[in-house]
Structure formats: C-alpha cells, structure tokens
Lab assay of single mutants.
Amino acid sequence: MASQGTKRSYEQMETDGERQNATEIRASVGKMIDGIGRFYIQMCTELKLSDYEGRLIQNSLTIERMVLSAFDERRNKYLEEHPSAGKDPKKTGGPIYKRVDRKWMRELVLYDKEEIRRIWRQANNGDDATAGLTHMMIWHSNLNDTTYQRTRALVRTGMDPRMCSLMQGSTLPRRSGAAGAAVKGVGTMVMELIRMIKRGINDRNFWRGENGRKTRSAYERMCNILKGKFQTAAQRAMMDQVRESRNPGNAEIEDLIFLARSALILRGSVAHKSCLPACVYGPAVASGYDFEKEGYSLVGIDPFKLLQNSQVYSLIRPNENPAHKSQLVWMACNSAAFEDLRVLSFIRGTKVSPRGKLSTRGVQIASNENMDAMESSTLELRSRYWAIRTRSGGNTNQQRASAGQISVQPAFSVQRNLPFDKPTIMAAFTGNTEGRTSDMRAEIIRMMEGAKPEEMSFQGRGVFELSDERAANPIVPSFDMSNEGSYFFGDNAEEYDN
C-alpha cells in the first residue's frame, strides 16, 4: 500500500510504541512475548500442572481467558453494579484439565481477579502490559475465525453469508486497541457500523446529549479505520460520505453494504499476525530463551520457528480426527482463516481442507461434555516452508469459486491468482447506482469489472525454506488448481455463540 510509510507498523501498534527502528520493534515485541511466557509459567505453578498438562491447549485457553477477564475493567465495573446470582464479580476462573488415573478430569478453578492481575503485572515488570493482553485477544479471535462461520451475524446486519472472507476479527472485544483495529476485516468494521446506525434509528437519543457526542466521535473513528483499509480513492470518498452524514440511517447502511461487497474484489488491507497460545510461549521462556534479547516478529519467520520446536497437546472428542484438529489450530496460529487453501497447503506441506470436510468441533470443551471418553493427542503445528504475512489485500483475480465463501483475504505475501467468483459478486451490483453516491458507485463498479483474471497478485513473492531466515531465496510455489480455494466452501461450520 502506498501510504505504508505514514502508518505505524503493526509491531508498533502491538507494543504501543512511538516510531521505533526494526531492532527496537523486535525487542519490544519480544518483551511482550516474554511477559506472556513468564505469566503462563507462574500460572502453571499456581495450578500445580504437570509439564504435559501445561502444554494442553484447553488449559492455555482457560488461563488466557482468566487474565483477560481480570483486566476487563468495563465488564468488571458492570458486574459490580449489576450483581447477578451466583456470579462473584471479583473472581474469575474456568475449567482446568488434569490427568488422573490414566483419565482426563475437569476441575473448575476460581481465583481472585486481583490475584491474577498481581501475577500478570509481576510477570511483566510491574506494568499492565496491555500489548500482551491484546495479543491474547487476537489469538482467540484468530481461533474463532478458523472455527466458526459468522453466517447468522452477517444475515442479521443485512449482509450476504458468502462475504465471510471479510469477517476477520469479528469476535475481537471493543477494547483491543490499535492492534485489534489493524486485524479487523472490512466486513467486521461494516458490521460494527451498521449495528451502531441501527441503534440510532431505533433509539432517538442515541446521537443526542453528552453521551451522543461520545457516540458520534466513536462512529467517526470507526469510519476512519474502515476508510484506511480501502485502497481505492472511490471507496475512500464513499467512506467520507458515510462519516460526514448528519443523521446516519438506511442510506448509510446501503452504502456500507455496497462497500463491503466491493471489497470482495477491490480488497481492503487487513493486517495478519501470528499470535500463538500462551502454552507455546511459556515452555520456550522456561527453556531459557530470551525473546527480548533475541527479538521477535509476528509477521516473519519467528512464529514458524517457534511452532517448529513446540509440543502442544489437545483434548480430542471420541469421533474427532486429531489431524483435522491440528489443521484448525495451525490455521489459527498463522492467522489464515480466509487465505486461499492452495497457498496454505503449499506452505504447510500437507493438504489443507475446507472447514466442512474437517471432523472436528471447536477447541474448547463445553462444561456439560462427558470427560470419560476424552483422549488427548499432539497437535501437528509444523510447516514445510515459511512466508511473510501481508497486510495488503493483493490485486484481484477471477477463479472458480464456491457456493460458500466467494473470495479470499490473503494472509501471506505469496504470488498467486486470487480466487473470487466474479459473476456471483457482480450480480449483486445491478441497477442500484442512484442517489448521492452514484458517481462513486459507478466508478467502483467500473474498477471491479476491469479486474483481470490473468493478473498475478504479489508478483514474484515466494515462500522460503525454514533454514532461509533472511528470506534470501524465494520459492514461487505451484498450486494444484483442481483443489478448492475457499475454506468455508459450501460450508456447515458451527455458528459462533458468545
């Protein structure tokens, strides 16, 4: 993207840094990872977990959730003011799984939030270390993106479920800051804005008074975040219109849905970061690795190297396929839920299948599930090659597409044709070009129609051997075009429920 120079890199967003050079960025990201790792080690000690239990991804998720809940100030305040039966607002906890007599047992633990905050700050040299908290939120978000298709949420806001490739980060909490905003897809931002506008339509006082002023500035800020994701002048001009509207209503909703559809071809720039579970960072720190000293990046080879040398386990339900569970977590670790499966298959070195073909449910185990038949197995999170994460949407291309997802959002900077089903997408653009945004709409449609099938995206960008740390010898991959490109292809993934 041309304006790259004016933006802070995501590592800076990730670490609240002012302008830093590459070495400083690597050190501050490393410091953040160190903090998460030290916190995780301490929690495993508190909970008396064995090494194996500490490497269980379900335990990692519970521990991450506990610290996120302990620092969720708004919710904590709300819980104190609106006490609900049987919930102690000062405590947080969740299921911890232990191996007892050759069987997995679930144990519900409860801790004072104050105590968890103390352990977290102690692991982070006394700081609140917001960057580390956001990092864990993005890992949870990436896992949700890989596990669930947001059909219901899309339909509720009037969008087409086939636009799911635009929904990265749709389950990120509001408090995820600049680093969170960077990884949100165009569809996620559109959905947040539509929800806001709908509230304004239904509630006369939404934009009024002292609160209304705050609401208005939040609305304009979200519009600017979305505008910054678009790469064409016409899309940005249309966002200006939406932002400046005196009284946002149905016309703005129409414009936003139009823009979301246009992003299936004229893709937005959305950041991709490899955020790993805390149970990967903990053992690495415990083994003596100093992330701050060595430096770390979320968008280069580092996460690949770390996963190459990590042992992570997962509980497996009786009829689940461990290899499929591994694929789910591998995609989440690489922030690749909406990437082209052919690119992923090449990088991973084994075939990556669409969601609907995987015999696996989510990673988390519900409290009512029976533990008797639970097994555990090693997650295979290694890769054959590594590639640089991208934040450009890439230019655009036609490809055989599917009944489910009709476009992709690249996660890796790797040369390819970008699949999208042009006739299906263009069919949504018939007729409606009147109104105050008509010239911009016409211009956007013209650009979409001009998108050429034979153009290559990320020209000359390749993948790298894991021994090639400096990215000196790019390998331009070859793809098996007979395979499906979309992950949520004609899909039956479970729906995400809060």
Rank of each mutant, 00 (worst) to 15 (best):
R355S: 06
I301H: 12
G490C: 11
M163V: 03
D101A: 00
M440Q: 02
N224S: 13
R436I: 02
G54L: 13
R213F: 13
V270C: 07
V242I: 03
A181R: 00
K452F: 05
E11R: 04
H135D: 03
R236Q: 04
V190H: 07
T15L: 05
D145E: 09
L68Y: 10
R156E: 08
R436A: 09
K77V: 00
R38F: 10
L379C: 15
E107T: 02
P89S: 01
M163P: 07
R389P: 05
N247V: 01
G356H: 10
N309D: 13
M331R: 03
F412D: 12
S486A: 12
M456R: 15
S482P: 10
A366S: 04
Y313L: 03
I365K: 08
L49A: 02
L266K: 10
Q231A: 01
E434A: 04
T45C: 01
A234I: 01
S310T: 14
Y289R: 04
Q241Y: 13
M189A: 01
G295L: 10
E465C: 10
Q20R: 12
T15Q: 10
I116Y: 12
A85F: 13
H140V: 06
R117G: 15
L56Y: 04
L61E: 03
A263K: 09
N321C: 14
Q311Y: 04
H140P: 01
S3L: 01
M448I: 08
D34Y: 01
L298I: 05
M66R: 02
E369N: 11
S402N: 12
A493R: 14
T396M: 01
M13G: 00
G300S: 05
E18K: 06
R389T: 03
M239G: 01
R19E: 10
I257T: 14
P95G: 01
A284L: 01
E11Y: 05
A131Y: 13
T378H: 01
M374D: 10
Q327P: 14
Y289P: 09
M163W: 09
Q58N: 15
R152E: 14
I194N: 04
A451V: 12
G356D: 02
I365E: 08
S392I: 05
F206K: 03
Q4E: 00
R156Y: 06
V329H: 10
A373G: 01
R342L: 13
E292H: 01
A233K: 04
Q231E: 14
T215Y: 05
F258H: 10
S478N: 11
N483I: 15
D72K: 13
E292V: 01
M371Q: 00
L61M: 02
T433R: 00
T147V: 03
E254K: 09
G431D: 07
R389Q: 11
R102K: 14
V67K: 10
S457N: 01
I194Q: 04
D439W: 07
R391E: 14
E53D: 15
F488D: 11
E14T: 05
M456N: 05
W330Q: 06
I475L: 00
G17F: 09
G490P: 11
V270L: 14
F291W: 12
S297R: 08
R382W: 06
N250E: 02
S217H: 01
A22W: 15
A27R: 01
S3N: 01
L315Y: 14
V299A: 05
A22S: 01
H324P: 12
S376K: 06
Q364D: 13
A182K: 13
G200E: 13
W386C: 05
E80F: 01
E449I: 13
L108F: 15
R221I: 05
R221G: 14
L108P: 05
Q241C: 08
A153P: 05
G17L: 02
D290T: 15
I444Q: 14
R355L: 03
I96F: 06
T6F: 13
L307E: 13
R348G: 15
G300T: 08
R382S: 06
I138G: 10
R441N: 11
D491C: 02
R221E: 08
F458H: 03
L256Y: 05
C223P: 12
S50F: 15
I57E: 12
R382F: 06
A70P: 01
A323C: 01
E73S: 05
G450P: 02
R8Y: 11
I265E: 12
K351W: 08
V414A: 04
M196I: 06
D497E: 01
V285E: 05
K184H: 07
S345W: 05
A251K: 10
T424D: 01
E380T: 06
L256P: 13
I257Q: 03
L306T: 05
D491L: 06
G362T: 08
G460L: 05
A411W: 06
S314N: 08
T6A: 14
P303C: 07
F304Q: 13
H272T: 08
G485V: 05
P453Y: 06
Y219M: 04
K48D: 08
G93S: 05
S392W: 04
A85G: 01
L298F: 08
G37P: 14
L256A: 03
G249M: 10
T171E: 10
L226P: 07
R65G: 03
G462A: 06
K452V: 01
Y111N: 12
I63G: 15
D72I: 10
I388Q: 07
R400C: 07
R246Q: 12
I301E: 03
M440P: 01
A428E: 06
G86P: 02
G288R: 04
I253N: 06
S274T: 03
L315P: 13
K91H: 08
D372G: 12
F464D: 03
L49K: 03
Q241N: 11
T146G: 09
N144T: 06
S60M: 02
I36Y: 10
T62Y: 12
E252P: 11
H140K: 11
Q168R: 09
A332V: 08
D128Y: 03
G393H: 08
R236H: 06
E11D: 12
I25S: 01
G288Q: 10
P423L: 02
E210M: 12
A218M: 09
M13S: 13
D480P: 14
V363F: 08
A332P: 04
S28L: 07
N432V: 02
G185W: 10
N370S: 06
R446S: 06
V299W: 10
L133V: 09
M32V: 15
M105I: 06
I63Y: 01
S310V: 00
D51R: 00
E64K: 04
R221T: 14
S141W: 12
Q415R: 15
L264G: 14
D16V: 14
G435Y: 11
S486H: 10
K227A: 11
Y97T: 03
E449A: 04
R117F: 05
N417R: 05
D340P: 11
V408D: 09
D468L: 08
S335R: 01
K184Q: 01
S407Y: 14
E252V: 14
R384T: 01
E339R: 08
A260F: 10
R38W: 10
A260H: 13
Q311S: 01
N321D: 14
T390M: 06
F489D: 10
G35P: 06
V183I: 01
L226R: 14
E81A: 02
R204W: 15
Q327N: 08
Y111G: 12
R317V: 07
I445K: 03
R446G: 07
L298Y: 05
G268A: 14
G249E: 14
T157M: 09
N368R: 00
I201L: 05
L193S: 13
E494R: 13
R208A: 06
G394I: 08
V285F: 02
S326A: 07
L466G: 00
S69H: 09
K87A: 06
L79E: 14
M239T: 02
R261A: 13
D240C: 08
E46K: 09
R470M: 05
N370F: 01
A278I: 13
T6W: 11
D439I: 07
Y289N: 14
S392R: 14
N142W: 08
F338C: 09
N144L: 01
S245Y: 11
L256S: 06
T424W: 01
Q364A: 00
N59K: 01
R121F: 06
K452L: 00
A387Q: 08
G185E: 12
L259P: 13
S383N: 08
I406E: 06
L307F: 15
A123C: 03
L266M: 01
V343K: 08
S269W: 10
V29L: 02
R38L: 03
